[in-house]
């Protein structure tokens, strides 16, 4: 049996009198995609922030590679190889690809006493890293992040995390703001990251996207893990119903998605 890379044991988190997470138990192994599903307000973002070292669990333990860990600040989690990629990917829209790729870890040439930011190396490394993930349209490291499409930004952010030795990749709704085609790029990159042996935690509320790449699923409802199952154990409809708290939304969801696929991603106009 392989040891999980990251494991949560009975993690609780409360902010003052408000309990946000109840007894969360989750494991994710190397080369596995864990899909974390849940509606808005289910505690997904608190859970991510706890994993990323932004919050400390009120009670409970976090284990990595069979060893208990405690993150005082985001840097501690990052040093352990936990990388979080947020919804909009690159957060420095006015920086070039090469520059933002190396924020905080700039490659440096030394000329006498002067340290020089090695722009050429930075650009080449960044472009190479993202092209290895199959995004060949990015070929100039001087382009500004803000000029990339949403999918390209996500891909760049993921490539960056992998380049800097991430072992656990936390993706916070990477496809939420993207169209159908852009989303499929990001999903392909998730599969590529899995192939390279990363443990991926994929947060989403789009069941189709989760089912396309997930090995292992956990549904979060009101701060607790309501279901925890492997690929193929549940159907798409069952998962959607679970997320909505048992209401039969599955058929509506299918209807909507069917509509959106034939109407270039636009939801139907409400009937007046």
């Amino acid at each position: 049996m392989t040891q999980p890379v990251l494991e949560l044991r009975n993690v609780n988190k409360s902010f003052g009198p408000i309990d946000v997470l109840h007894d969360i138990n989750l494991t994710v192994k190397a080369g596995e995609v864990l899909c974390l599903l849940g509606d808005n307000g289910a505690g997904k973002s608190t859970l991510i922030k706890t994993l990323a070292g932004v919050h400390k669990p009120t009670t409970g333990e976090i284990w990595m590679d069979g060893e208990q860990v405690s993150f005082e600040k985001p840097k501690d989690a990052a040093d352990r190889g936990i990388a979080t990629v947020h919804q909009f990917g690159g957060t420095f829209p006015l920086m070039s690809i090469g520059r933002s790729f190396f924020v905080g870890v700039e490659p440096v040439k030394k000329i006498g006493p002067f340290k020089i930011f090695d722009r050429k190396t930075a650009n080449e490394t960044a472009v190479k890293a993202v092209q290895e993930f199959g995004i060949t349209r990015i070929d100039d490291g001087d382009r500004l992040i803000g000029g990339l499409s949403g999918g390209e930004r996500q891909s760049l952010a993921i490539a960056r995390a992998v380049h800097f030795g991430a072992r656990v990749l936390i993706l916070d709704e990477p496809t939420a703001a993207l169209g159908v085609k852009q989303s499929s790029h990001v999903l392909r990159i998730i599969l590529e990251a899995r192939k390279r042996g990363l443990a991926v935690i994929f947060i989403t509320h789009q069941v189709t996207h989760a089912m396309a790449v997930g090995d292992h699923f956990a549904v979060l409802i009101r701060g607790a893990v309501a279901a925890n199952f492997m690929r193929g154990e549940k159907t798409r409809e069952e998962i959607t119903d679970l997320m909505a708290g048992g209401e039969a939304l599955a058929s509506l969801d299918t209807e909507l998605e069917g509509y959106m696929e034939t109407h270039e991603g636009h939801p139907p106009q409400p009937v007046a």
Partner: peptide, 21 residues
């Protein structure tokens, strides 16, 4: 200098810059 990159990052997004170390 690499310092300049930090300055741009700081102006772009303070929280991300801090998280990047």
């Amino acid at each position: 200098s690499p310092f300049g990159n930090w300055i741009y990052a700081l102006g772009g997004d303070r929280v991300s810059a801090r998280n990047a170390g």
